[in-house]
Amino acid sequence: METETGRLATALGRAGAGAALLSSFEDVCYATGFEVPPPIDAGAAFAFGPTLALVTADGGTTLLAPNAYAARVEEMSRADENVLVETFGHFDAVDAEHAFLAAVRSTVAALRGDVLALDRRTLPAAAAEVLEGFRTVDARPILRSARLIKTPHEIELLREAVVAADAGQEALRTLARTGRNELDVMGDVVTFVERTAGRPVPWAGELVTGPRTATLRYPGGPIDREIEPGDTVLMDLSVRNRGYWADCTNTLVAGAEPSDDQLRYFLAARAAFEAAADALRPGRRASDAFEAAAEALGQHGLEPAHYAGHGIGTAVNEEPRLVPYDHTPIEANMVFAVEPGAYAGSEGTTGARAERIVLVTESGPEVLSSFGWGMDG
């Protein structure tokens, strides 16, 4: 069975690189399965540098993580070797910078003379001193090539993440009631997501209600506002479960039947979703999906307000992106979050976005999300 490490090793070989030193959370997760925590806890504060992964062209993997993450590493990592970097001592002082650089130096020592792929966005400048003498190349196009097509294991994890996100969207339909505060609704939605996932999950997105749905100012909420009768309610929900993301958006009306205006914008967004999703077929291009969404919006007298979607995986927003200038060929086992929107603008009172996860198969698109749309028509 095709694996993530195998795809990455193949991409390294094509690029003429002997190894890649990965430093972004999404690349580390892709290579090792270790779900790097959001950098807001004590473990991140103790560490001098990011969690790293070394992947060699023969498929070997080494994870370098702060010792504060020892339990998580034991639970999640599938790397051949796990190196815990001592970055903090509760009773004796630790030189975190020295420990981090020493771990990097030791890990790459056997590779001297090889071409080493690096991510210049996220690797600390201090690492340059221990990598001096290496011939280096940009790791980003190598990782892009590997991560574009999802493996069966990745698709399984993406399906699991979608189930958790679906639970949040289904919960919104009963939680977004007249008189409830946006902050309370969002908190309750996350509870449903985490109970479905069976664990705490990082999440992102927005919950906006009323006239704020008429314009795009992401993230526009939640804020301290009570939902009023007849308000449009729009929730864009992204959740990460076991290292992989789901991203979905629904639009509904609280405490009343949709007005003609609300229905117009929602049906336009939904039609644009359906058109863009249908364009995600092997042999087409990412830009074709954008053009399909734009044509559908045009049939409702509207123009695109933003892109029609993006790839998704260990990052919530990956390439290819469904924009008019991205002509990446669509291939089977790509996965996209398709999310066109339609908005009345600053002079209006409503808007809508329709977003679900779509898997490209040999025979066409498969919509993985199963939550019900917020309006019918």
Results as ranks from 00 to 15, higher is better:
F192C: 03
R212M: 04
A204M: 07
G230L: 00
F273E: 13
S238R: 08
A277G: 08
G230H: 00
P200F: 12
A276M: 13
T249Y: 12
Y244I: 08
A269V: 09
F266T: 06
T209E: 12
A272L: 10
D224V: 14
G221A: 05
L267G: 01
T209P: 04
R285D: 14
V233T: 12
Y265R: 06
F192P: 08
R242D: 15
G220Y: 02
Q262N: 05
F273P: 12
F266R: 12
G255N: 09
A271I: 07
T232D: 03
L216S: 07
E206K: 07
F192D: 05
F192L: 04
L267H: 01
N250W: 04
R285P: 12
A277N: 10
Y265D: 02
A197N: 15
P202S: 02
A254S: 11
G205L: 03
V201E: 12
R284F: 15
L234G: 03
G255Q: 02
T249A: 14
L207T: 09
D260T: 00
R217C: 02
G283V: 15
A254E: 09
M235F: 09
D247E: 10
E206M: 10
P200L: 14
G205S: 01
E257K: 00
L237M: 05
M235S: 10
A268M: 10
W203A: 03
E194D: 12
A271Y: 02
T251I: 09
G221K: 02
P211M: 01
P282D: 15
V208P: 01
T196S: 13
E206Y: 10
L237G: 02
L234A: 11
A254G: 09
A286E: 15
T213S: 07
L216E: 03
E226S: 13
F192E: 11
C248H: 09
G243L: 14
T232H: 03
A276P: 11
I223A: 12
A269G: 13
A254C: 08
V233S: 07
L207N: 06
D188K: 06
A275R: 10
R264G: 00
V190Q: 11
R285S: 10
P229M: 05
S238H: 02
A254T: 06
P222Q: 06
D247V: 09
T196D: 10
G210A: 06
T191V: 12
V190T: 10
F273H: 12
F192Q: 03
C248N: 13
A256L: 00
E226N: 12
A279S: 14
R217D: 06
N241P: 07
A204Q: 08
V201P: 04
N250S: 13
L280H: 13
T191R: 04
P219K: 07
F192W: 11
T213C: 00
A277I: 13
E228F: 07
G187A: 08
G243H: 12
D224W: 11
G220T: 05
R212A: 10
T209I: 07
G198Y: 06
L234E: 14
R240K: 14
D261P: 00
E194C: 07
T196K: 08
T213L: 01
Q262Y: 05
R284Y: 15
E274I: 08
